Simulated assay, not measured.
Amino acid sequence: MIAIGDRLPAATFKVKTDAGTSEMTTDDVFAGKKVVLFAVPGAFTPTCSMNHLPGYLENAEAIKAKGVDTIAVVSVNDHYVMGAWAAATKAGDKILFLADGAAKFTTAAGLDLDLSGGGLGVRSKRYAMIVEDGVVKSLDIEENPGQATVSGAAAVIEKL
């Protein structure tokens, strides 16, 4: 599993935009930037939609005021679902929604979680990390994917 001090694995995400679909590599997202990346097991799922994401939306300005260039959320969902989630939550340009549809980034980072028992298949653990120029500076993984405490916006703000 990825750890503090490690470089993020190379991967390509899909992003839904007004112009269509684009691809972004880990370099596009993280190179030369300070990024808060949080991960959710699934877009539109209860904890993700009612607790985790709203905290980042409400605190986006406070997070960026701490020198953060980008706030991004990643999920093992396709880019259409992530685009719909961004639209439904009115995230605008506050948060970058990264689709890791085949879980390549998630598994390469060792942050995958098998939720097949719940009918979801391979998903991401719920976590938050602070990344500087592609290197993990902070990583907090939830022990229970149904909670968003150590990976929530308030916890990240304290670390910044």
Rank of each mutant, 00 (worst) to 15 (best):
S151G: 13
K14F: 06
S151A: 15
K66P: 03
D28R: 05
D114M: 06
A19F: 01
G83E: 00
A103C: 06
M50P: 03
D6E: 01
L8E: 03
T106P: 00
L98I: 07
V135N: 06
T70K: 07
C48Y: 13
G32W: 00
K16T: 08
T106G: 02
R123L: 08
M82I: 13
M82T: 11
R7Y: 00
V131H: 11
G67L: 09
G110Y: 07
V131D: 04
A86S: 15
A31T: 11
I130E: 00
N59Q: 15
S124G: 03
T45S: 15
N77A: 13
L98T: 06
S138G: 08
I2C: 04
A91K: 09
V73D: 02
F38A: 12
P41K: 10
K14D: 10
G42Y: 02
L57W: 12
T149K: 15
L96E: 09
A3S: 14
I157Q: 15
L57E: 06
D100A: 07
F13L: 08
Y80T: 07
K94I: 12
V40I: 15
D27M: 02
I157L: 15
D69E: 13
D18S: 14
A91E: 04
A155R: 09
V136R: 04
N77I: 07
E23L: 08
F105S: 02
M1Y: 02
V156Y: 01
L115C: 09
A31R: 13
D27F: 00
G32S: 10
R126L: 07
S22G: 00
A19Y: 01
T17I: 08
S138W: 14
L96T: 09
M129K: 03
P145W: 05
F105M: 05
F97A: 12
V68N: 10
G152D: 15
M24W: 05
Y56F: 15
G67T: 11
T107I: 04
N144C: 12
H52R: 11
A3P: 01
G42M: 14
A39I: 07
A39N: 05
D114Y: 03
V74K: 02
D28N: 10
L139C: 12
R123H: 01
G55Q: 02
E61F: 05
L8I: 14
V74I: 15
K16Y: 04
A103L: 06
A86M: 10
A31S: 13
E143G: 07
K33V: 10
K64E: 07
L115R: 10
P9Q: 12
D114V: 09
E143T: 08
